[in-house]
Design a protein around this nucleic acid. Structure first.
Lengths: 101, 101
DNA sequence: TCGATTGTTCGAATTTATACGAACAATCGA
DNA sequence: TCGATTGTTCGTATAAATTCGAACAATCGA
């Protein structure tokens, strides 16, 4: 896990990219979980999807500036980049988290 | 233009579907225009995209419950379903329209 | 050092979205 | 009725997203 993780500056994330990252049922579930609980490992879902798929979705969220991944031993702990995302897209995450599916 | 247009009940539109409809630069432009001005015809864009493409994007927005299309002579006039959409997804459209690209 | 744990990367298959020309349909005005 | 206007539908081509197994990499504890 040598290469440093790329956490984009939110200024470089477009609205379309942010919406696309959120426009997936699996990723919505991840975001909802991450909103409830910090420091989720990437395998928080592995009863449902294979790990290569999970890894893909975490990456999409990371590249859209929605989550920050911090290495912690053999895992990576994930947390929403709430403040930064809210500053870039005010109200968006709130409305997504408030919406019923 | 005989077949009646399908305007879904917002209760049947999922969050993922709504987000996917919005997660496209062309459709974001359309939604922004429609938010500024009611009764846009479908060809409001035709300097930029061919009409079959425009028709496609209007349909995606319609099926996501974002716009209502009303036949008016040879054209179809489009308007945002603001109230209904806001009720189903409170704050979502506001945040999208407020965001800079 | 060995094995277990955690997650990434690669490659490929499948699915889905986008784009657009051509033909068609509906309406209106002359 | 004819032609112009407006938009849909169809077919197809291209691009992008999703999925997943297999192999690999990094860390930790025994």
């Amino acid at each position: 896990m040598a290469p440093p993780l790329r956490h984009p500056d939110l200024r470089h994330v477009t609205l379309a990219q942010a919406l696309a990252a959120l426009a997936d049922p699996v990723r919505l579930d991840i975001v909802r979980m991450a909103a409830k609980k910090d420091d989720l490992p990437c395998n928080a879902f592995l009863q449902a999807i294979p790990k290569s798929t999970a890894s893909h979705h975490w990456r999409v969220l990371r590249e859209a500036g929605l989550i920050r991944q911090e290495p912690e031993g053999t895992q990576k702990l994930n947390r929403l980049r709430r403040k930064e995302f809210d500053k870039r897209f005010p109200g968006l995450l709130d409305s997504v988290l408030r919406a019923k599916r």
